[in-house]
Design a protein around this nucleic acid. Structure first.
Length: 524
RNA sequence: GGGCGCGUAGCUCAGGUGGUAGAGCAAUGCCCUUUUAAGGCAUGGGUCGCAGGUUCGAAUCCUGCCGCGCUCACCA
């Protein structure tokens, strides 16, 4: 019999013995007087004498994380709400039955304990237990107490165990919660209304990505899980919601990686009567306030590099660097690539091609397709040259029209749009622009995207006639933005994989995949 | 998808250049009424990821597969 089955059986037997002691095995509730955190904050500064003089009676509940039996007395550590408190169980104090119960407890069990506070010889604040109440049994063995659960796969697959064993994991998700609360507060403060728009859409629009497909039986139609809420939120701006936002999941059927999970959370917002500069200001404030809510300061640590040669950056969320995409390419132009790029180079396809040639001669490779629009090449060049240099929060603005099918053009440079992205820690964390509200221009942009699609770009935007109709009813000028919540959370918690800020990241199924793949391979 | 690495007890890990499996924690029994990675004595626990191959003999060598991690390309 495998060990965990044996332990399971042994612990079920103990459960029966516990019942025989008169303790319901899965009772419905336990009235506690204090959380463990309350006890720690209220009594940590009380001396042994003070606790003795004015006895403090408490009832707490928690999970046993350590247990030490010494003949006719014993200790245990209870954890509840992320905090730990020791209890002391003495046969004289809890009686024969109470002590029998104590001896039947295992690591991981939930119990209630009532008694009074005291300090042990070593000074640790402890409950002197007078009554033990059994609450729930852990039938499966917890991981080793010292190293905890470190196997990354098990940590993600058995997140519940990860959370029990690794307090710092719990802390990251508490910070994530505080971060999102703060973002909602800031948006509300600015008069934005939170809405929910479809997750299942007949046309997957509002971004450039491959969608997941699903099917509705009664209507017999294919639907796409949304890749962005953008086009629906802008329909709401048409409808008179001047300030509107949504915090919710997007789904993109693409690769996984340290910054990519197929479902991820986005804050997306639209503000009427402003442009990309206006929405940029709101976005900066949302992130600055979130940083404060998470870490109590606008600074956060960002550790880069392998263990041993680590560099710790201090990200400053109150000071934002700013440059146009073209300025960024010029600024970060690598010395190895010869003469620096100049503004004039971006004005023609030939100029851009020369830049790519120079860059590729010095570096390894940047894909270049002479048939694709020049703007697309410039954007690719930016990613190759500058993106990995962007550690501190940096706003990059003015993007090529060719890669910005939903943004308004710059009045003086129609090949460029009023669009910005925010970068930090080598990641894009936000994307915003002055929203294109000319329905005829929008139709031409969609048509240009359709051409890209015909050229084989599966991710190019689809035509959305209803969206054009909405614009035709008149959308006020507006600025809009999306903020990648998971990535901001990574940056604010010094987490270097998106899986550490998503409670249940996508993994291959545990057993089924193995068996299925195995059996189909056997058939072939 | 390509490259590199990993998979041994419930957990954290040794071992491995071929000779049939080890530690600590966890578990079980006994001792112990202020311990704290409690301690002491004893005991149980493994298809060494899966399937084939080489061999008298495979955890170890070879092949394939599965899973995981890192990395490159595409993507927020």
């Amino acid at each position: 019999m495998p060990l965990d089955e044996e332990i399971y059986r042994i612990r079920r037997d103990k459960l029966k013995q516990i019942e025989a002691l008169g303790q319901p095995t899965y009772r419905t509730k336990y009235e506690f007087t204090h959380t463990i955190e309350q006890i720690l904050t209220s009594y940590s500064n009380k001396t042994a004498e003070e606790l003795e003089k004015a006895r403090v009676e408490v009832r707490v509940a928690g999970r046993i994380m350590a247990i030490r039996l010494m003949g006719k007395a014993g200790f245990a550590h209870l954890r509840q709400g992320g905090q730990k408190l020791q209890i002391y169980v003495k046969k004289d104090a809890v009686g024969d039955k109470g002590f029998e119960l104590y001896k039947l407890l295992d690591l991981g069990d939930h119990i209630g304990a009532s008694g009074y506070l005291f300090r042990t010889r070593t000074g640790e604040l402890t409950i002197h237990v007078e009554e033990l109440t059994f609450l729930s049994k852990d039938l499966l063995p917890l991981p080793e107490k010292w190293h905890g659960l470190t196997d990354v796969e098990l940590r993600y697959r058995h997140r519940y165990v990860d959370l029990v064993m690794n307090p710092e994991v719990r802390e990251v998700f508490l910070k994530r919660s505080r971060m999102i609360q703060s973002m909602r507060r800031t948006m509300e403060w600015h008069g934005f209304v939170e809405v929910e728009t479809p997750m299942m859409q007949p046309i997957a629009g509002g971004a450039v990505a491959r969608p997941f497909v699903t099917h509705h039986n009664t209507l017999d139609m294919d639907l796409y899980l949304r890749i962005a809420p953008e086009l629906y939120l802008k329909r709401l701006v048409v409808g008179g919601f001047d300030r509107v936002y949504e915090i919710n999941r997007n789904f993109r059927n693409e690769g996984l990686g340290w910054r990519w999970n197929p479902e991820f959370t986005m804050l997306e917002a639209y503000q009427a009567y402003t442009d990309y500069q206006g929405i940029m200001k709101v976005t900066q404030e949302v992130i600055t306030e979130a940083a404060k809510a998470v870490n109590g300061t606008t600074k956060s640590k960002w550790t880069v590099g392998e263990e041993g040669s680590q560099v710790v950056h201090e990200l400053d969320w109150a000071h934002w660097q700013r440059m146009t995409m073209r300025e960024a390419i010029i600024k970060f132009w690598p010395e190895r690539a010869g003469a620096k790029a100049e503004m004039i180079d971006f004005a023609s396809a030939e100029g851009v091609k020369k830049l790519v040639d120079r860059f590729n001669a010095a570096h390894s490779h940047m894909a270049y397709d002479p048939n694709q629009p020049t703007g697309k090449t410039i954007a690719a060049l930016f990613e190759a040259v500058a993106e990995e240099q962007l550690t501190q929060p940096t706003i990059i603005y003015e993007f090529p029209t060719a890669v910005s099918p939903l943004s308004k053009r710059k009045p003086d440079e129609p090949d460029w749009t009023e669009r910005f992205e925010i970068f930090a820690g080598q990641m894009e964390i936000s994307n915003g622009f002055s929203e294109l509200n000319d329905p005829e221009d929008q139709r031409r942009r969609f048509e240009a995207q359709l051409k890209e699609r015909e050229r084989g770009d599966e991710e190019a935007h689809q035509m959305d006639e209803d969206y054009i109709r909405a614009l035709s009813y008149g959308m006020p000028p507006a600025g809009g933005v999306g903020v990648g919540i998971d990535r901001v959370c990574m940056l604010l918690t010094d987490s270097h994989t998106i899986r550490d800020v998503i409670l249940f990241p996508l993994l291959r199924p545990e057993k089924a995949a193995t068996t299925e793949a195995g059996s189909s391979a056997a058939k072939e």
